[in-house]
Simulated assay, not measured.
Amino acid sequence: MLPLAPLAVMSIQQLPPAALAYLGDAVYELYVRRFYLLPPKRLQSYHSQVVAQVRAERQADHLRSLMPSLTETELEFVKRGRNAATGRPKRVDLSVYQQATSLETLIGYLYLTNPQRLVQLLAQLEFDRPI
């Protein structure tokens, strides 16, 4: 992850959850891409492995696995993310979409406020081993 100075929580609380989810989506995908980078493989193999992990269903699974480890503040941002996901997804159930958006919101929040905690939580996620 790019080393950036954390932002004040008060500043973050002014951001809409959709903005945090937008950032969190990018951070999560970058983390997954880095995870699958080694061993070297064809680009299509990279793509297939990453897409399998960034799908809403997999993100929802990851959120559920992290829930017992989250602080009250983190749970608050999860809730904000869930409530912000009001669109009608085409491919997945609304509850799955809400959970995926919640994870992305949490990741965006932690990326801006506590990158060390973000790394700690991301390390708890279980991905399929690289091929």
Rank of each mutant, 00 (worst) to 15 (best):
I107R: 02
F35Y: 15
L75I: 04
I131S: 12
V27S: 04
Q98K: 07
R129M: 13
L106R: 07
F77D: 01
H47C: 02
A60H: 00
T113S: 13
N83S: 14
R34S: 09
S95N: 14
P130G: 04
L7M: 15
Q13M: 15
L20F: 01
Y28D: 02
L70N: 13
A8K: 14
Q49E: 15
S65G: 10
V32Q: 09
G81Q: 04
R129A: 14
S45T: 07
L7F: 09
Q98D: 01
V32P: 05
M1C: 11
D128E: 14
H47R: 11
V78C: 09
R55N: 08
Q53G: 08
L2H: 12
A60Y: 05
A19E: 08
Q120V: 07
Q116C: 03
A19M: 14
Y31T: 11
L122H: 10
D93W: 01
V78W: 00
A52Q: 12
T113P: 12
E104P: 00
Q44G: 05
V119P: 00
Q124C: 13
V92L: 02
Y36E: 03
L7Y: 14
R129D: 13
P68S: 06
P89H: 05
P3V: 15
Q124W: 07
S69K: 14
V27Q: 10
L112K: 06
L112I: 11
L118M: 11
L43C: 04
F35A: 01
D25Y: 06
N114I: 02
T71V: 02
R88C: 01
L75G: 13
Q59Y: 00
L70W: 08
L23S: 09
V51G: 00
V27W: 06
R64Q: 14
L121K: 11
M10S: 15
S65K: 11
L2A: 12
T105D: 01
E104K: 14
V54P: 06
L15C: 12
N114F: 09
R91D: 05
A52N: 04
Q13S: 15
R129F: 13
Y28H: 07
L7R: 14
Y111I: 10
Y46N: 08
S102Y: 00
E76C: 05
V27T: 07
L7T: 03
Q124K: 15
P89M: 08
E29I: 02
Q116A: 10
L112N: 11
F35D: 01
E74C: 07
E29V: 06
S48G: 13
A56L: 00
S11E: 11
Y111R: 06
L7H: 03
Q49M: 12
A60Q: 01
Q49A: 15
L94R: 13
T73S: 09
I12F: 10
T105Q: 01
L63E: 03
Y111E: 12
Q99M: 13
L37R: 12
Q98A: 06
H47W: 08
S69T: 13
Q44Y: 00
A19L: 09
